[in-house]
Amino acid sequence: MLADFVQTVFAALSIGSMYALVAVGVTLVYSATRIINFAQGEFVMLGGMIMVSLYGEGGWPLWAAVPVTLLLTAALAALLGLVAYRPGRQGALISVLIITIGASMAISGSAFHVWDGDVHRFPAFSGDAPIKFLGAALAPQTLWIFGAAVLCIGALFLFLHHSLWGKAMRACAIDRTAAALMGIPVGPTVLASFVLAGLLGSIAGIVITPLTMVDYSGGMLLAIKGFSAAMLGGMGNVAGAVLGSVVFAVLEAFAATYLSSTVKELITFVVIILVLMFLPNGLLGGRQQRGLAQEDTLE
């Protein structure tokens, strides 16, 4: 009994860390641009796939493979930012949404041609020998995943609140016009949010692939789960994104252990619809302005 419980907590830990990395990326881009980036999950897929080629099959050392992987995905994220976000675009919520869906299809389709349709993985960073704990087995990679999530999100938090660039990003999120009037270069700041989101996704892909494996088509579903988590916590709020991810991960892990994997898949999406109905601003979003999405149009 206890072993089952502890095992489930471990599962929740690794899923939750991955969702958190994706959800924080979604929230960053949303704050800066009011764009929900359907392609966010593709960065996770790419992070995993590029590592498969460099580290798994190419035999590169970790210290060389990781930076190159991050660099490549960051470049792609910047490109996506340039395509999806254009300051002058009027009232184009639907078209931007479709652009990111299209980008997601284009990236995953290209990945199919660059690699193939198979499922891949590469060896875990500290071996596969499980650590026994209260009768449950903890894969050492789980610690890497958790560590990476805590470190990255912690660093991001410090960056947003204690650096000039971070403050500029937050200013842009609050009011882009006012930020521009204060002399903040809005364009580069928006681009930076895409790059940061790409990096977070890529890091998630790098640490999670040894556990969950990766194939070309998994990105879209991951993106949907990521921003569902972000929305659960309250869109545009880093702490909320983390909280939402934890809630989702715990729900999914316990549903998978104690109910069935079908229920696990359903639970996420039923929760999304319920949250949207009753708490449209999310758990941490406050209730003052019902029916969010007042920003139907981009400025």
């Binding site: 949404l97 579903l221 039923v270 999304i272 619809i273 949207l276 109905m277 920003e295 139907d296």
Partner: peptide, 27 residues
């Protein structure tokens, strides 16, 4: 249920419905 939502939120709620149906069909 979903039409009180707008924009992105409506898109995601309806997308969730599609995924629920897809999972149900398969399961």
């Amino acid at each position: 249920v979903v039409l009180r939502l707008r924009g992105h939120y409506l898109a995601i709620a309806t997308l969730s419905f599609t995924i629920i149906i897809e999972v149900l069909i398969k399961e």
